[in-house]
């Protein structure tokens, strides 16, 4: 039950959000969050969005991880993901 993935908000009607979760569109409740907009990513749990993904924090976390990696060793040429996330 704690297994959850970030879901992209596609549309909002009242307290109901339509999200894309692993390629599937489902309706979830946004009753527990304020200020959600289409395009945001939310953590969904048993049909409710519990938290909005903070894009700036996500970028900062990844930047720090990649900086640590580059300090440890230069990136190998076959590395696919680079320093940024794939477009969602």
């Amino acid at each position: 039950m704690c297994l959850a993935l970030p879901a992209k908000v596609l549309g909002i009607t009242g307290e109901t959000g339509t999200v894309e979760l692993g390629g599937v569109e489902i309706d979830i409740s946004l009753a527990l969050l304020d200020d959600v907009q289409p395009g945001d990513y939310v953590v969904v749990h048993v049909g409710f969005a519990l938290s909005k993904i903070d894009e700036a924090e996500a970028r900062a976390t990844l930047a720090a991880l990649h900086a640590a990696r580059q300090a440890a060793a230069p990136p190998p040429p076959q590395h696919r993901n680079g320093g940024e996330e794939a477009a969602g």
Binding site: L5, P6, H79, N81, E84, E85, A86, G88
Partner: peptide, 10 residues
């Protein structure tokens, strides 16, 4: 998948 794949980087 955004916010997922980047955290599975080998």
């Amino acid at each position: 998948m955004k916010h997922v794949d980047a955290y599975r980087d080998p």
